[in-house]
């Protein structure tokens, strides 16, 4: 099971990085989301105790680790904020520079 999950996380990671490296800026933005998904998956999986109960006080027996979950909860929100801002930048690049190509961004300096 850990091998499967680790492999899955690795593949999602790779997909995110491949997408970030695209010239199409929308694809780069998509890659960013995928990458943060992979990171969050990894974190939560680290807290897994293969238990069947959510971390609530008073839960019987084994629960999953609450700490990584709290971390990921914060990470999700921050990633969302960062993503919204990146998207706004992409948008401005598109409107001002009339381009959706990351190789053209350099041109905007002038």
């Amino acid at each position: 099971m850990p091998v499967l999950i680790a492999a899955g996380i690795g593949i999602v990671f790779a997909v995110g990085i491949y997408q970030i490296l695209r010239r199409n800026l929308i694809r780069s933005a998509i890659g960013l989301v995928i990458l943060s998904n992979a990171a969050n998956l990894f974190l939560v999986a680290c807290g897994s105790r293969w238990g069947l109960f959510a971390p609530y006080s008073g839960s019987p027996a084994q629960t999953s680790d609450p700490l990584p979950q709290a971390l990921v909860l914060t990470a999700i929100v921050i990633a969302m904020g960062g993503f919204a801002f990146v998207l706004a930048v992409v948008h401005v690049v598109a409107l001002r520079g009339r381009t959706g190509d990351s190789d053209d961004i350099d041109r905007l300096k002038n």
Binding site: A7, I9, A14, I17, A45
Partner: peptide, 14 residues
């Protein structure tokens, strides 16, 4: 990079 991430994840999980 994906392979590196997978290895890290596997080590962490195992």
């Amino acid at each position: 990079v994906g392979a590196a991430a997978a290895l890290v994840a596997w080590t962490a999980l195992a």
